[in-house]
Design a protein around this nucleic acid. Structure first.
Lengths: 215, 215
DNA sequence: GGGGCAAATTATCAATCGATAACTAAACAT
DNA sequence: ATGTTTAGTTATCGATTGATAATTTGCCCC
């Protein structure tokens, strides 16, 4: 009974593309749990294959990690999110609540969050790029929609507005960190956090624009 | 020219207690930057001593890491914080702004934050204990002070209030993560984030207690 | 049914890890 | 000065790491 037969009693031979994808998916789970410093041997064991086989599909460990990043950050980003935020047939508050539920469905996953933290501590550019994306595709669109719904001028988003949106976004995100990373038993459910946070954002923006609003 | 003479040209002999403390302080910097999986050899090199010397002061690597935790989480906690929050000669809003400035001075440090994240990902109990401490010593006292200042009944803090406080606290904390961990250039300064966050908290609490307030 | 290609394994290397034992040398007391 | 103590070093062990080369085994097609 060798190492490789531990997981799959009968050794299967899979086509290249399919196998590679299987490796990436398991690598996400594995690295999310054990960190990127964990060994390729341990990963291979969980895959039920031998360690050198990984090097037929990936040039190096770093190459495999890069694939993990792509699978998590690029492929899990949903293009529908932009449309949800832009759909003016729905009142803004409802739109924001629904968006954050959809966003949390993807981001508030143990593997997503842990990979994000591990990557951030490794110091690559991935997290910085992701943060820029959040600002450009989520926070600034939200502010533009707020201005439109309240009949305000449609100029450049101000630093005040962006920073407020970051604070509120961070508050929601931190709920995910507390529950998924630190294993805190949720005090109130996600819906409560999202609704109160959105209310904070909207009334905060109201405060910024007091006096500038049409009657 | 040996390894050990790289940092201190002349090998000095320090008393035991002093030496140990020096090792712990350098270990904080080192592990904060490189992670707990980094080698004791590399740490020793930065200390300008040989690696086995570490084992005269600490039983094992884990023992050294435990000392790092203690130095960061226990010893940097300031007992004055409780008094700042409880000082009713100062209006609550000012009190909270001042407290969060003092708190951020300690927590928004690259080493503090990185050690906290590394520790959280390792999964020990330290972070959970710290989170409990934040709730018991910061968030719930804030809510009790809010109730007092607004003449509300002084009963048990509700889940709604606690969760709102977590959201706002998380928003402020995330500002530190963005600037210290992800290297984001601050859009607005810390004071702006604290003031708007405190305003969000207070008006959020106001919304929870609408109608219950004395005239 | 056997030839050929690719999937997968066995074997192994050089580097690095945490930790221990044995040795050296600096500081202090007498 | 000399002996005792202990901070500090040298040397080394066994385990583990990422990666490569050589070998075996399953599968498809003619």
């Amino acid at each position: 009974m060798t190492d490789a037969s531990a997981a799959n009693e009968k050794r299967k031979r899979l086509p290249s593309e399919e196998r590679r994808e299987e490796f990436v998916q398991k690598a996400i789970e594995f690295f999310a749990e054990e960190g990127f410093d964990s060994s390729t041997r341990e990963l291979a064991k969980r895959l039920g294959v031998t360690q050198p086989l990984l090097y037929r599909y990936f040039d190096s460990k770093d190459d495999l990690i890069a694939e993990v990043y792509k699978a998590v950050y690029v492929r899990r980003w949903r293009s529908e999110w932009d449309e949800m935020l832009a759909d003016r047939t729905v009142p803004l508050r409802d739109r924001l609540v629904r968006f954050y539920h959809a966003y949390a469905m993807v981001v508030f996953q143990r593997d997503w969050m842990r990979i994000f933290l591990f990557a951030g501590l490794k110091g690559g550019a991935i997290n910085r790029r992701y943060i820029d994306r959040v600002r450009d595709r989520i926070l600034e669109p939200i502010i533009r929609e707020y201005r439109h719904e309240n009949g305000l001028f449609a100029g450049q988003v101000t630093d005040d507005e962006t920073e407020l949106a970051w604070s509120v976004h961070g508050g929601i995100y931190y709920y995910g960190v507390r529950t998924e990373i630190y294993g805190q038993i949720p005090i109130k459910d996600l819906n409560f956090v999202i609704e109160t946070s959105i209310d904070s954002l909207l009334s905060g923006l109201d405060r910024f624009h007091e006096g500038t609003r049409r009657p």
